[in-house]
Amino acid sequence: MTRETTISIVIVAGLLAAAFIAQAMGETFYITLATRMAILGLAATGLNIALGLGGLVSFGHAAFFGIGGYAAGILATHAFNSEPLLLGLPGTNQMIVIWIAGAIAAGLVAVLIGLISLRTSGVYFIMITLAFAQMIYYFAISWPAYGGEDGLSIYVRNTFPGTNTLAPMSFFLICFGLLVIGLVFFALIRDSRFGAALQAGRQNDTRLAAVGIGPFRVRLVAFVISAMMTALAGALFADLNRFVSPSMFSWHMSGELIVLIIIGGVGRLAGPLAGAIVYVLFEFALGGITEHWQFFLGLILLAVVLFARGGVMGLLAGRARHG
């Protein structure tokens, strides 16, 4: 097992242990913090496929996070009110159905955004993905049927077979389970033929084309997979807060996901999770003292960029190895 894998397992296991300790101490608030870490970690792991493996600096992943969130909000609202959704189809409060719907919706939107934005690169790509996400943000604000600016409440947390999702530990375990699946999926992709092509394209797309692999299709598929995973996290986020609002679509959210990855380690297996842990801890520790806690987070970010290029994972596991 590589050092990268070992460290990643330790971080993941640490999160699980923290939740169980919180449970044993009866501190449900800490379980909620751990759940937030797992969800943000999953969202950023999704982005890490595009950004870390593919070098695609999407500044619009909030679009997918929000689509997942609204899928949960809209489907649950229709189920709650027993109103058919569209084409006579009902809403649902089944998480599994919501996840699938959210991921598919985000995947379709990602195809559209990708087809256009992936023809550009560098700063243009960043700006175009940002522009698409902002379009969706303004659309959500001006859509009164689903709460407009005020957002949408989920009155009862959606359900999952065999558990009471209202119990904090049960909901944590669902999110944790999906996080683990997301991380395994990331590792498999990274080590696969597809991952080889994707990472080669990040390093040098002239080389990729010269061996006969068209970079565009590889990136489009990566972008879509990436969007779907982030959407899944968005659906969980909606259920955690029992509330969705257009802020899930905002550029702050996209920026936050990028920041998590940079703090944790770009392209590293547990990088996004490590970033999410640091982020949520900071928010918790300093958020109560000063509302300018993000300023201090900015200082950390600066330190990482200047002195610890590989982020948390770089410090713990050394430089990335590519076999």
């Binding site: 498999l188 992709i189 080590d191 696969s192 033929r193 597809f194 991952g195 080889a196 092509a197 061996v211 006969g212 692999i213 590889v218 598929v221 076999g323």
Partner: peptide
């Protein structure tokens, strides 16, 4: 892998 025409395989470690 390019020669084998198989870059859309996602799970087998290279």
């Amino acid at each position: 892998q390019a020669r084998q025409g198989s870059s859309f395989r996602f799970f087998k470690p290279v």
